[in-house]
Amino acid sequence: MAFGVEQAKRWMNIANDKIQQQKQYLTELDQAIGDGDHGLNTARGFQEVVEKIASVNYEDLGSLFKDVSMTLIAKVGGASGPLYGTAFLKMSLALNGKKEADDKELVAALEAALSGIKARGKASVGEKTMVDVWEPVIELLREKGSMQAKEAALLAKEKMEHTKELEAKKGRAAYLGKRSVGHIDPGSASSYFLFAALAEALEG
């Protein structure tokens, strides 16, 4: 598997397509347990991302993901801005100077992204956040020792659906306590779209 600038751009483009298509769905999820801005915010953020990276000829993956990160931080006003912004910033540091990443390097970069998300949001598994998708997915990839993107996307979907059972401990949804049970966490849903997009981008 080769993951270079072209694949990374394709990943962002597919992710953006999915998020634009699901904007209303993400908004509805967030209206149920949050402040209702997740669909609009992530849609705006990723739209800006694809516009930003489309015209640039990147020398390496690090500089591409740096632009992704800075765009999300600048354009997304809700929690997903600093969270995804930090995730892609960590990926950019992990892939600095690399024109292409092999399986191991890509998994390591995703692992760095997860640590960034956890440090920024101070969340752990079971708190009904995007960490409930990211952590098991990264664990799976680490165990496989290779970029099993399709399996990762399937697991991401399953884990996203599982957030329905959980009570929110972080973010605006935590104010609802037990009333947050029965709803999918919007951050876990957009994270699932990211992993689904990655799988499609790697299929070529």
Binding site: D35, D37, N41, I73, A74, K75, V76, G77, G78, G81
Partner: peptide
């Protein structure tokens, strides 16, 4: 306060 005139915050 706010983000691009909308509700939100902005690290920059």
């Amino acid at each position: 306060g706010g983000n691009d005139g909308e509700i939100g915050t902005n690290a920059f």
